[in-house]
Amino acid sequence: MKNMLTGSTLALTAMLGMSATAQTTINGAGASFPAPVYQNWTYTYSQSKPGVTVNYQSVGSGAGINQIKAKTVDFAGSDNPLKLEDQEKNNLQQFPMLTGGVVVIVNVPGVKSNQLKLDNETMSGIYLGKITNWNDAKIKALNPGLKLPDLNISVVRRADSSGTSFIFTNYLSKISKEWADKVGFGSSVKWPVGIGGQKNPGVCNNVARIRGSIGYTEYTYAIEANLAMVQLQNKEGQFVTPDAKSFSAAAANADWSNAPGFYMVLTYQPGNNSWPITGVTYILIRKDTDAAMRKAMIDYFNWCFTAGATAALKMHYVPIPENVVKVVRDKVFK
């Protein structure tokens, strides 16, 4: 299919007599968590680099992994890291691209962004279905200054399997033993309660529509939808607000040199300012891609690490630190 496309593009450019250089099209698919940045990058890169077109479809981490295994795409994005043995079994290479935060959003009348505080017990209690009303004594005790209405809590979560859910349920498993025992973590789990929304925008939509709802989504989506975010408790017991600063505080802890195959989960990291639901998003490439395509992709990813970093920061994602980029270049790109 891809060859056919490239072929027809070639034929078309030759026919129009516009350019004689070969057109390279790099196709990627996967995680929707970093999709806002990836789409910005692919557009900017394709504009600035004549002859190369990069596409990224936000289809979800699991779908991206399936597609790269089936060789239907050239690279995949995933928030759900693959262990080293999985990568080797499927002839894949994985490296980190960005760090970002998953935030908790609420639609409670009278509650503005970053006003509401939820600690580990109330967060897990709500998602376990044990705390069902916003005027619950435990929530009130944490928020003495807020007027919380007598309103049912409607839990919203992802209906599809997703890397965002992986990060979020991983966080819940770390803060609540009951969650870890009853539900566990994964890109889709058996949710005790909650309405399912399709992808990040679906969750935002449902939270915006339902009074008394609570949901989780990637930070950029929450900002775009203008939804009220919640302060959460981190490993040090501090309440933190979600922003690029608290995401990078969590990311600073990561010890990449001791992570085989770059397998790393960044939830519930130590540090006074660390945001507890921070996640890494990865790129997967095949080892058996032909050399020309591999070179084009590595050029692109190198551009993402350097020139792309500014755009990522603007969109509230944290680029991978310089020293980690060097490890990626040494181990994967070489």
Partner: peptide, 17 residues
């Protein structure tokens, strides 16, 4: 809230293996 057969299929197929 509930789900129907067709909604389950539409929601989960892209990611399932």
């Amino acid at each position: 809230g509930a789900t129907t057969i067709s909604a389950t299929l539409a929601g989960n197929f892209p990611e399932a293996d």
